[in-house]
Every structure is written in C-alpha cells, then in structure tokens.
C-alpha cells in the first residue's frame, strides 16, 4: 500500500487532488481511498487531504501519519506546518516551485523534487490552479498510477474544454517528471 498526504491551502483543491489520484488508481484496477482532513476549511488556511492506493481492499480509516509521498501545493507551508512529519525515508516530497529542490534544505532522507506547477497551469489553463498538474507530476515521478488513468479522471471530473486543458497540463507535468525518475 502507498499512502499520500497533500498539503495545501483552502481553495487550492487539495481534496480534489486526492480524489483525482484515487479515482485514477481505481481506473488502473487498484483499490483506492481518498478523504479530506475534515476541517471547517477557510480560504487560505492550511489544509490536508489523504489518499491510499493498494492492491488489496483498504480498511484503515485513520489519517496518513507515515506517507510514502507528499505533495506540497504551497511551499510557504514548509515554515508554517511540519509537513515532513512521518515521511518515509524511501519516499518522495513533491513541491510546487520554480526553484531547485536543494534550495529548500529539507531535513529528510526522502527524495525531494520540485515542479513549476503553477506556471504550467497558468500557461495551459490560463489560471493558477495547479492541483491537476501536481497529480500528473506525482504519477510521473513515482509511476504509481498511469498518466492515462489520471487524464481520464480529470476529463470525467471536468467535462469539456476545461477537462481537456487539465489533461494537457497533467501530460506535461508527467513528461517533465518522468525524465527524472
């Protein structure tokens, strides 16, 4: 089983990102679970969402305390919240940033990667909504889920041109990350 924790801010679509990932895993024939951290979310407040992906039926309902993968939607959270808590040494921390991962000087044995997800989203979607881009990036960096499955979950969630554009952003992020795997 792989466990994913997503750190974002209210309004960035952290919960949708977890659902898209889990749904994509479902299309790949895996078992998956996605759920929010159930806060009374406010725009801009730190939020978390969780996702589990497994070959077997998932029974646990507790929050993700020892994630294999972390997605950080807003790098300013790195100073505000202990986002690295419990991250496995052989895991991965994916951050939306223009800067190289070394710059964050994170105290973790896990692999740290960055992707300019907001820029990609701005360029392709015309809006700085990067949750779909980050989901594509995670698939590219880890190989956990196929890019086709993610594109399917994105286009089903957002029918029409919006979904198509999001699928493009997913593909671009996936390709960028796949090279570095």
């Amino acid at each position: 089983m792989k466990e994913i924790r997503i750190h974002g801010r209210g309004g960035q679509g952290a919960v949708t990102a977890a659902v898209l990932l889990a749904e994509a895993a479902f299309y790949d024939g895996l078992f998956a679970q996605a759920f929010p951290s159930f806060g009374s979310e406010r725009m801009g407040a730190p939020v978390q969402s969780f996702c589990r992906v497994s070959d077997n039926r998932i029974r646990s309902r507790d929050q993700v305390y020892t994630p294999d993968y972390l997605i950080i939607q807003d790098y300013t959270l790195l100073g505000a919240v202990d986002v690295l808590q419990g991250l496995k040494g052989d895991g991965l921390c994916l951050i939306d940033s223009e800067n190289p991962p070394e710059e964050f000087k994170l105290k973790t044995e896990a692999r740290v990667v960055t992707i300019p997800a907001t820029s990609i989203a701005r360029e392709i979607l015309g809006r700085p909504i990067q949750n779909t881009t980050l989901v594509g990036a995670l698939a590219g960096a880890t190989g956990l889920i196929s890019v086709d499955a993610i594109k399917r979950s994105v286009t089903e969630k957002f029918p029409g041109p919006v979904g198509e554009k999001n699928a493009q952003a997913v593909q671009k992020a996936y390709d960028l990350m796949k090279g570095g795997r």
């Binding site: 078992f31 998956a32 679970q33 159930f38």
Partner: peptide, 12 residues
Amino acid sequence: MDGFILTHAYET
C-alpha cells in the same frame, strides 16, 4: 455511518 470518515470518503 460515521460522519466525514465515511460520508466524505471516496472509495470503490
């Protein structure tokens, strides 16, 4: 059914 834990969880 447990509120949020089940009502808001996505699964198969």
